[in-house]
Design a protein around this nucleic acid. Structure first.
Lengths: 233, 233
DNA sequence: CTATCGTTCGACACCCTGTTGACAGTCTCG
DNA sequence: CGAGACTGTCAACAGGGTGTCGAACGATAG
């Protein structure tokens, strides 16, 4: 059994978020002390978690496995994280932050045509979900029993819904899109559709859209729901 | 502590599905013996489970609570069900059966106008989900870690997707709907949208559509996605 | 050399699951 | 009516998971 604290993981979600700011102390969740000494251990736990989550569901991963994967004992794990849930939260925060970054970049460099702009909207949700599917699937699973995970996820969705609703309103105001359902309701339905369809595509359970087609399918529904005239015949 | 085996529950999902057929033996999941003697106990367990699930998530309900709620000890619980999962499965089967029944009834009595027909499609999914929201929410939660729950759910969705795809093809064939996305992909996306939007509406977490509006919103998206002309301007 | 502090883990208490074996009713048949 | 079979019941156990406590270890400062 190798005690090497850095297992080979292709692309962990941790990705050194804040090198400069060095948040003084976050007494809520996270490790107990912000000293930089055990940082490698913390990263090893996160990397181990993301790796294990690609193999089995969140509920089937034990704290002991997380600890052993990071080369430490179970009690030592609790020195770095207060629970298994906190590890998932840390992973999820990183993925959400990446999604936000990608989204903001897209907003600053909008595509020239409207189809391209909506494709950016959809792709910015899809990309981080796809590259860290294990974390996202685990978060979806834990959402039901963990209020903290649920809140992070809800806040994330809330921003996407607001942005999409604003975009729909803008298109209607400039006459590009016809009136129809309240923009907020429409944006809510479309965003949840994306979430669920992407989930099934990546999880592969139940009827699903092929991974290569999924953005085109979602985009097709968005365009018709936003721009389609109600009743052609 | 009352030993009364029938706790007061408003409308349990059990609903005595087959009084006459009396299936000889289902050796897979379910209770070990089909004799009618302990039937009340079995129903009491199911009723207790549905009642408890309205108060807390599936993961937080223990076998011991289920047993005590039904007026029996924990080992006795295992005489009736092999696990907590089997209880949820039995509850879910009843809800799914009810949804199927409602759907088949709608198919035999189609509304005269196309909007009414699509409303039937959406409402037949929504109604059982709504009247047994605790079971459905629990099933959604357990789906991630229970292959059996996942399979039941997937099969259920698969049928709805197939039926919706066939209906879309029929509308296109008779010239009522324009060509567009592959009908199967479109039906998949729309059905998952319904599932997720209904889930958030009933669970009340994250951005959601008001319960009174949800069928209208979903119907609006379906109609535009199916009948809307791609680009009006 | 010693005091301190960050870090580590053996051992513990507790909760939950699923199984075993003994036992109590009841029903049937000789 | 009494032996046997079968349903239903539970105390007790084994096993595995979580989270905590306190002793101990090593580096570093005084």
């Amino acid at each position: 059994m190798p005690a090497d604290p850095s297992p080979d993981v292709s692309a962990p979600a941790v990705a050194a978020p804040d090198p400069a700011p060095a948040a003084p102390a976050e007494p809520g969740r996270g490790r107990r002390t912000p000293r930089p000494s055990g940082d490698d251990r913390e990263r090893a736990i996160l990397a181990t978690a993301e790796q294990l989550l690609t193999r089995r569901p969140y509920a089937d991963v034990s704290v002991d496995e997380l600890a052993r994967g990071a080369g430490i004992s179970r009690p030592t794990f609790y020195f770095y994280f207060p629970s298994k849930e906190a590890v998932l939260l840390a992973l999820l925060d990183a993925v959400v932050a990446e999604a936000r970054l990608r989204r903001d970049t897209a907003l600053r460099h909008p595509a020239p045509d409207r189809e391209g702009r909506w494709r950016q909207v959809i792709a910015s949700v899809q990309e981080p979900f796809r590259s860290h599917r294990a974390v996202t699937l685990a978060a979806a699973e834990a959402r039901a029993s963990s209020p903290a995970v649920r809140d992070v996820w809800s806040a994330h969705m809330e921003r996407f819904v607001e942005e999409a609703a604003a975009e729909i309103d803008a298109e209607r105001a400039r006459g590009a899109a016809p009136a129809g359902l309240p923009s907020r309701d429409l944006a809510t339905a479309l965003n949840w559709m994306n979430e669920r369809v992407l989930h099934t595509t990546f999880a592969g359970h139940g009827p699903a859209v092929a991974e290569a087609d999924v953005v085109d399918v979602l985009l097709g529904v968005w365009l018709r729901a936003i721009y389609g005239e109600p009743h052609p015949r």
